[in-house]
């Protein structure tokens, strides 16, 4: 569903990703770990088409080098770093934009809302509230709801646990696990290695723009590479 083949990117003269190869197959939950500055958000932006690779190919939902505006319509739900809700729009309008981005005729907006209500009951209570006035935890839930409301087949999340209280992080990861169990393909970009490796099947470790480890989650939990990157 998501394939990066020897992808390199630059910000001006500064190389950000170096020959990154990564694959997420249908129905997999794969995490991408790495410390600050490793290039995780650059990779998210590259998958989303916001950054064009200087070399290599990106294929999302079978479509090579798709335009950013087309990514959601390919059935990809995106949860960017820091939620990025539209603060001056209501929760309902944020969800509506997420729904229309995917535009799957088989699911009506009202039905999408019902589904969201089952996962995040609080979101339905906040529909008429301006997104900018929500608490951090509520914003995180709305950002995920916005990505899910059009029933995407692939979910790409960039540091969703950032800034959340431990209890909310556990709740959030439980929902991601549940989505995966229902058949969603998930690429979870995270700094919280412990939590991510607990729910993921496989993982990649990024350091200074390069993949330095790529293994099953269980193996990565014991890996010295992860320990060194996070605890050294």
């Amino acid at each position: 569903m998501i394939e990066l083949e020897a992808v390199s990117t630059r910000y001006g003269a500064v190389p950000m990703l170096r020959e990154v190869t990564l694959r997420v197959g249908a129905g997999e939950l794969v995490c991408l770990l790495g410390p600050n500055g490793a290039g995780k958000t650059t990779l998210f932006k590259t998958v989303a088409g916001l950054i064009r690779p200087t070399s290599g190919t990106v294929r999302v939902a079978g479509s090579p080098d798709a335009r950013t505006e087309r990514i959601a319509a390919l059935g990809v739900g995106l949860v960017p770093e820091n939620r990025r809700l539209f603060p001056g729009l209501t929760v309902a309008q944020n969800l509506c934009l997420g729904y229309e981005a995917v535009r799957r005729e088989r699911v009506g907006f009202d039905q999408g809302l019902e589904d969201i209500g089952r996962l995040f009951p609080r979101v339905l209570e906040r529909l008429d509230q301006m997104a900018g006035t929500l608490s951090g935890g509520e914003q995180a839930m709305v950002a995920l709801a916005r990505a899910l409301i059009g029933r995407p087949t692939v979910l790409v999340m960039d540091e969703p646990s950032l800034g959340l209280a431990p209890k909310l992080i556990r709740e959030y990861f439980r929902i991601v696990e549940e989505l995966h169990a229902r058949g969603s393909t998930v690429l979870l970009i995270e700094q919280n290695a412990g939590m991510a490796l607990r729910i993921a099947q496989r993982g990649y470790v990024l350091s200074r723009g390069s993949v330095v480890a790529d293994d099953a989650a269980e193996a990565l939990r014991k890996s010295s590479v992860v320990r060194n990157l996070y605890f050294s």
Binding site: L50, A73, P80, F86, C96, L97
Partner: peptide, 20 residues
């Protein structure tokens, strides 16, 4: 109008939401 306001608030996110 909803799209205009979305673009004015966060252009990059608006693109991710499929708005041209």
């Amino acid at each position: 109008g909803m799209r205009i306001r979305a673009v004015s608030q966060d252009l990059e996110m608006a693109r991710l939401a499929g708005i041209d």
